[in-house]
Design a protein around this nucleic acid. Sequence first.
DNA 1: CGTCGGCAAAGCGTTTCCCT
DNA 2: AGGGAAACGCTTTGCCGACG
Length: 308
Amino acid sequence: MDIKNVDLNLLVALDALLAERSVSRAAVRLHLSQPATSALLARLRELFGDPLLLRSARGMLPTSRALELLGPVKQVLDEIDAIVRPRAAFDPASAVHTFTLSASDYVEYALLPTLVDFLEREAPGVRLAVRPLDLQTVAQQMEIGEVDLCITGLQNAPAGMYQQPLYRERMVCVVRRKHPGVGARLTLEKFCSLEHILVSLRGSGFSARIDDALSKLGRKRRVQLAVPHFLLVPEIVARSDMISTLPERLARGYANKLRILEPPLEIEGFTVGQIWHERNQREPAQIWLREVVLKLAQKRIPPRSKLL
DNA sequence: CGTCGGCAAAGCGTTTCCCT
DNA sequence: AGGGAAACGCTTTGCCGACG
């Protein structure tokens, strides 16, 4: 038997017939006349080579073959129903869902705690999986659905994806609290004389845009350490005499261990944004997630407090 | 080669009537 | 009362030839 020769509506009729155990009542359920439903039963009998329902003194009784079919038919119809039914709006309170994010550890630090807190309260059935950001493969990961949403600096955004800015971040300098060589103000002289820690997400090289800016001023700095993670940096700075230039949100989180200083030269900040593939553009759950991330990201922007 | 119109056959529904 | 079968009618489908 070939499935393309089977009218799948027969299974709908079978489901109704077995549920009602009456052709007349099944007809009502199917919005058909009794004879039409009877004809459907005849076709089902031929298809399965079994009488399926037998007349008895107490009405129509299912055969054992019919009882065998009951469960699988119901399951198949439920699955088809789920495929063709229009998507319901995402209901965070009742939804059971797992989102996969890709983000740098800085973004995790800046956004994840408030996001997790929000989800705990508003969407208890929603889980998060966070993958480390790999700029080489994140586009492909989103394309095949391994990653739902990527949150990163928009200068890193892969081409051909939807993107939305979340907030603007600026860069500040940090040294350990009791650093002996740094006074109230960080001079360019001092900045260039200290040993630097550089964060390079691509894990390559010891120079960044700061170094271009410095060379235009005829200066240079010494980068002693290049790391691929942001969160490592505050700990190392707190235990050494090194300096680093970090996103302000991250630096402020370590204000008890670090001194935050205004950079002695113009250092361009960056825009953090969310990036997603077209496949997720109209998905209700994904739209909800993006709205939540946007709301929380904008709420978190701290007031421009005075720098130490 | 693709499209359109006519025709026959098949499919699927309803009404009506008969049987259990 | 309720299910099945026959008769009937409408719609859809498939095929074929004509035509641009």
